[in-house]
C-alpha cells in the first residue's frame, strides 16, 4: 500500500463522481460512472482487496454501464433539471 498512489487514484474517483453528477447528458453520465467504477476497482486492487476489485470491474464498469445505456435508450437522452 503506497499512500501517494492511493491519493492520486482517490482524486480520480472524486473527479469522476463529481463529473457524473454535473454533466447534463445522461449517456455521458453513464460512461463517466463506468470510469468511476474502474478507478474504484484500481483503488481496491491497490489496497489488496483483489476479489472486491474483480467484482467492481466486472459488474460496475462492465455490465451495469451497459444496463444504464440500455435504460437511457428507452427514455430521452438529456435531463430536464
Amino acid at each position: 500500500m503506497i499512500w501517494q498512489l492511493d491519493l492520486v487514484i482517490l482524486l480520480f474517483v472524486v473527479i469522476c463522481a463529481i463529473g457524473a453528477m454535473m454533466v447534463k447528458d445522461l449517456l455521458s453520465a453513464a460512461v463517466i460512472l463506468g470510469a468511476y467504477s474502474f478507478c474504484m476497482a484500481m483503488l481496491w486492487t491497490e489496497m489488496g482487496a483483489v476479489d472486491v476489485a474483480f467484482t467492481e470491474a466486472s459488474v460496475g464498469a462492465g455490465v451495469s454501464t451497459l444496463f444504464f445505456v440500455a435504460a437511457i435508450y428507452q427514455t430521452t437522452r438529456r435531463s430536464k433539471d
Binding site: V50, D51, A53, F54, T55, S58, V59, G62, V63, L66
Partner: peptide
C-alpha cells in the same frame, strides 16, 4: 476459468457468471 478456480484464487461463481453473461450481452449489442 474464473468459476472453476474460484475457491483458490480471486474470483468465483458471481464474477465468472457476470463475465459469462457479459459475453451474451456483447453478442446482443
Amino acid at each position: 476459468y474464473v468459476i472453476a478456480h474460484g475457491h483458490e484464487s480471486p474470483g468465483g461463481g458471481f464474477q465468472g457468471g457476470v463475465i459469462l453473461g457479459a459475453s451474451f450481452i456483447l453478442l446482443a449489442v
